[in-house]
Design a protein around this nucleic acid. Structure first.
Lengths: 234, 234
DNA sequence: CCTAATTTCGCGCGCTCA
DNA sequence: TGAGCGCGCGAAATTAGG
């Protein structure tokens, strides 16, 4: 609570130096759809409660012109005939953050894609299986466990409490789990893909997006350049 | 090949107006890691073949100061003690393009995710199937087509050329395709997920990223604001 | 801490061009 | 003929020397 050491900032930051006035100019332009040098000067003048006299105004106005000129040179504002419009401005750090976030996002998606691609073949298998089931679906159930009897052209003789199978060439007998292991559902021909699967998945298999390396650590001076890059490779 | 009409641009655009000098100042600052107002003024002066001495230099130097000031106010450069550094600048249209590309990319990924999520359950089914196969794999084959005989506790009597099955409670007989249709491979309990599948896939099922709507069509005045948004929601 | 040299830059006169 | 602004004087700020 002691007295503050006297700061030598008589007017904290509302002086009439070009640096300060420039900020106010930018602010003003940013906040109005369209304005004029004169309006800006007037607005700024209002922020100086003190002297409100011709000379002051003339001075500020003169400074506003300076500021507007370099703002225009920098393409931060546009000025046609005396209509001044804000065109936007953003700096290095901000862009850096943005770049980073874009990059991160891309990386994440890349990984997802990769994970999916690695498993996509299995997915295709199950799809084929279900497809087949759909076509030949019947009402009848098969309870597990069960017995599977395979063979050429066996004869089947069904009694009320028994079944007799006969075959001239012998049988293959197995339980239910054997069947599953023989299905080879994961094999497929590439031609059968398009008719059964969305393009999206097919593209994924063929795509090598996730192998593409890319170095964003370019020494950044010219953003226009960088923007092009960012925009092009998705 | 006729003579050109006389353009009234004696010096195309290398005049000493603040607007022009500002551009040159920006260029100069952008191209050097660090520089000083004096260096800039000297460099610019070189671009004027004509210009004699002292007076010209003083004038240009004076203008450079103006430009530097507003550039600094705008946070496009930083100036500590007399070391001037470029901090970056980018404008509305460019940012707009960037924003668009980010958004497009996000949309695309969203769709991919959605497509995947829609099919992920089927993928899980096949995975379970193969898991089971792996556990109980045997050497024996089952050839298709085959016959499947299910029932409680049947007796099996195997001859050299026939097989007799007897059961007190009757049989269920079906062919191979029936079995497939009864497997219900697409049913699973959520507890069995973590042990069998990569987190990536599990997250995908639970995630509702692809439902999240989001409106980027904000009326954009303040980029700092917008940047925050862009950076936050992935 | 003081003086000189240098660097910055406030300020506004007066010319220009629409 | 008034909005725009080139231009440069001279004062304030900062740095160099002692």
């Amino acid at each position: 609570m002691a007295s503050c050491p006297p700061l030598d900032l008589p007017v904290p930051d509302k002086n009439k130096k070009l640096i300060n006035l420039s900020k106010q100019v930018l602010e003003k332009v940013k906040n109005s759809e369209v304005t004029t040098g004169n309006q800006i000067a007037k607005a700024i003048l209002k922020d100086f409660p003190e002297s409100t006299y011709e000379a002051e105004f003339k001075n500020i106005q003169r400074r506003v012109y300076d500021a507007l000129n370099v703002l225009q040179a920098i393409d931060v504002i546009s000025k046609i005939r005396n209509e001044i419009r804000y065109k936007g401005i953003i700096n290095n750090e901000q862009l850096e953050r943005m770049k980073l976030s874009v990059e991160q996002n891309r990386k994440r998606n890349m990984q997802k894609k990769k994970a999916l691609a690695e498993n996509i073949f299995q997915y295709i298998a199950i799809h084929k299986l279900m497809q087949r089931n759909k076509e030949q679906r019947k009402k009848k159930l098969v309870e597990l466990p069960c017995l599977i009897v395979g063979g050429g052209d066996a004869n089947i003789d069904i009694q009320e409490d028994s079944v007799r199978l006969t075959s001239p060439i012998g049988f293959t007998i197995a339980n239910d789990t054997h069947l599953l292991s023989r299905l080879d559902l994961h094999c497929f021909r590439s031609e059968e893909l398009p008719e059964n699967f969305p393009d999206e998945l097919i593209n994924l298999i063929g795509s090598n997006d996730f192998v593409k390396t890319e170095d964003l650590r370019i020494r950044e001076r010219d953003y226009r350049q960088m923007l092009l890059q960012l925009t092009e490779n998705q």
